[in-house]
Amino acid sequence: MQLDDDVVGSVINRLRRAEGQIGGIIRMLQEGRDCEDVVTQLAAVSRALDKAGFAIISSGLQKCIAAGDGGEVDRAKLERLFLSLA
């Protein structure tokens, strides 16, 4: 399955921001910054990664539904994908 270019672009931008945030977290740790600041940044990165994953999954589901190929949806597999992001 191929994702739409706009979804891919959005996800890549989000992942690049997360990549920058992770670099910032590493610097914060090396500088001995306050634990609360580090945890706040970790939470922000986690949310960014979750949103990227959900965008990919929802785009894939949208394509599957739109295709209407009559194929069965593997609900167990779908559930595992969603839970892997939880």
Rank of each mutant, 00 (worst) to 15 (best):
L81A: 08
E36F: 11
D6K: 09
A43G: 04
A86S: 10
L61C: 15
A48T: 10
E72T: 07
L61F: 09
A18M: 11
V73G: 02
S58H: 14
L78C: 09
D74P: 09
A66D: 11
N13E: 13
D6C: 10
A52K: 04
G24H: 03
V45M: 00
E36C: 09
G20L: 07
M28T: 02
K77S: 12
F82Y: 08
T40Q: 06
R33D: 03
D69R: 01
C35N: 09
G9D: 12
R47W: 06
R17D: 07
K51M: 11
A66F: 02
R17Q: 04
A55W: 01
G9L: 14
I12N: 15
V7E: 13
E72F: 01
G32Y: 05
G20D: 05
L85K: 10
I25K: 01
K77I: 03
I12W: 06
R47S: 14
G32L: 02
V73C: 10
A18F: 08
V73S: 02
V73W: 01
A86L: 11
L78P: 02
D69W: 00
S59L: 14
K51Y: 00
L49Q: 03
E72P: 01
V11F: 04
D34W: 13
Q21M: 13
E72W: 02
R80C: 08
V73T: 05
R80T: 15
A67C: 08
R27L: 11
L61T: 02
F82H: 04
K77W: 01
D50V: 13
D74L: 01
A55D: 14
Q21G: 01
I25E: 00
L81R: 01
V38Q: 03
V7W: 00
L15M: 14
Q2R: 15
I22T: 03
I56L: 09
I65D: 07
L29D: 01
G68H: 00
D34F: 15
R47N: 14
L81G: 04
S46Q: 11
S84M: 11
T40L: 14
F54H: 08
T40W: 11
S46E: 07
D5H: 06
R16K: 05
G9A: 14
S84Y: 12
C64L: 13
S10F: 00
I57M: 12
C64K: 03
L85H: 10
V45L: 02
L85Q: 10
S59R: 13
D50H: 13
R47P: 03
D74W: 00
R80A: 13
E19G: 12
G68S: 05
Q62E: 05
R47C: 14
Q2V: 10
D6H: 13
D5K: 15
A43S: 11
G71A: 08
L83V: 09
Q2T: 12
D6N: 12
D69M: 06
L78N: 02
S59Y: 03
E72Y: 05
